[in-house]
Nucleic acid binder design. Structure first.
Lengths: 230, 230
DNA sequence: CGAAATCTTTACAACTTCTTGACGCCTGGG
DNA sequence: CCCAGGCGTCAAGAAGTTGTAAAGATTTCG
């Protein structure tokens, strides 16, 4: 799901324009117009990024930065008509991530939003590895670690490559040729015996009953298929 | 100690101006003027931030971004006379953190540098909890002290760097290439024998039975992995 | 400058993985 | 029933990797 952006902007026209642009990129959006509301919504909705206009009617937009930074490191992009250098410096030193002057080019703004979200993602993903489960098998593609019933299982390079290809196309039938091509390269596409040997090894390591596989299905005459659901 | 900044700029006048401003803020500084040099210096000196002019004489400044992003997340600030929106978007989407158009206000630039360094510090400290334990081994990353069963153990600089990289990605399989790149730099990525020697030395110093390692696991054909739990 | 520490390189033994061939099973068709 | 073809299994030897010790080369530091 696309990130949630909190848009803080009192000018209805700009708000409409930004809403259109951001929704075209599939971002989820929440809008508000006052300092008080911005502070409340930032805390309540936990957005992944804040787009903040500094010229708000009920107070100093810098207070929004201060408030958010007390408890969170999410990216804050300032969007402001104030062009004075010392306004920019103040906002950045309070913890804003970027400062875009109005009028702005929408493509550049979107690129700056992407850059800010990308940086934030690096921080967030450090713990959350991309990992895939089917039945009792757990594959952590980030760490390159496989667990079966919670116990680590060691795979050789070719076994792992083969499993990776099957996972990448989980559910689909892959022909002998496709599998050989991806694991052994384009010169070995006739060696279907490799597949028999390595599929057998994977089954021995991953399946409870290798002779009656639940995950690594044979499609006779065609190839193999990884089944990740019942 | 203040952060090291790599300044990539071919115009001598701007370079002099920036040098003065940055040194007034006590940043350490290294300067270079070409794409090739920038890529080499970024890898060799491990700066904390890169200030990059895109209009270099010997090639495309975007290549510098690409090269750095292959192995590192350090902040990259673009400094450019190219004002076209699509140049900005290209640079930001390649992984640049910020884009400042020339001519720039020095105060704003310095604020943007502070903002980028502040963010990077948040990321860095996430991995660098001051002290890490696994089994009987205790590593104090702040003091650079290693204890095994409470006794201090001396590591050489390369041994320590290697251990640091493994700790930073604890649990994850790191390929020979990744390890060599981070410890010996980008020109030594074929010398897997270095790794064998240094892993052996680390095992001799950290493991109870170096021949049957509990922490420093080998993933044959792939690389090594630090296991911090049972 | 000289000694000590560290890094790099070499050689070889030990080990893991890959490749290959043999063989048996199953299925479906003759 | 018997056979052919595809598949699964096993295991031996080949090929390639890794661990280890130790000798030279280089750097560091007093």
């Amino acid at each position: 799901m696309k990130p949630l952006i909190l848009l803080v902007e009192d000018d209805a026209q700009i708000r409409r324009f930004l809403r259109a642009a951001l929704e075209a990129e599939d971002y989820r959006l929440h809008e508000c117009q006052t300092v008080a509301d911005a502070i409340a919504q930032a805390a309540a909705r936990q957005p992944e990024l804040v787009l903040l206009d500094l010229g708000l009617p009920d107070g100093d937009g810098l207070d929004v930065i201060r408030s958010i930074r007390e408890s969170s490191q999410i990216p804050i992009l300032i969007l402001s008509a104030r062009e004075r250098e010392r306004d920019k410096i103040a906002a950045l030193d309070l913890g804003a991530d970027d400062y875009v002057a109005k009028p702005f080019a929408i493509g550049e703004l979107l690129a700056r939003i992407r850059a800010a979200l990308r940086r934030a993602a690096v921080v967030a993903q450090d713990g959350a590895g991309t990992s895939i489960r089917f039945g009792r098998v757990e594959v952590d593609l980030e760490k390159r670690v496989i667990r079966v019933d919670g116990d680590e299982v060691h795979l050789t390079p070719n076994e792992y490559k083969l499993l990776q290809v099957l996972i990448r196309h989980a559910g689909k039938v892959l022909t002998h040729r496709q599998l050989l091509q991806e694991v052994w390269g384009p010169n070995q596409t006739e060696q279907a015996q490799y597949l028999r040997v390595y599929i057998a090894q994977l089954r021995k390591k991953l399946e409870r009953e290798p002779a009656r596989p639940r995950y690594l299905h044979t499609e006779p005459g065609v190839g193999y298929r990884l089944v990740t659901e019942d």
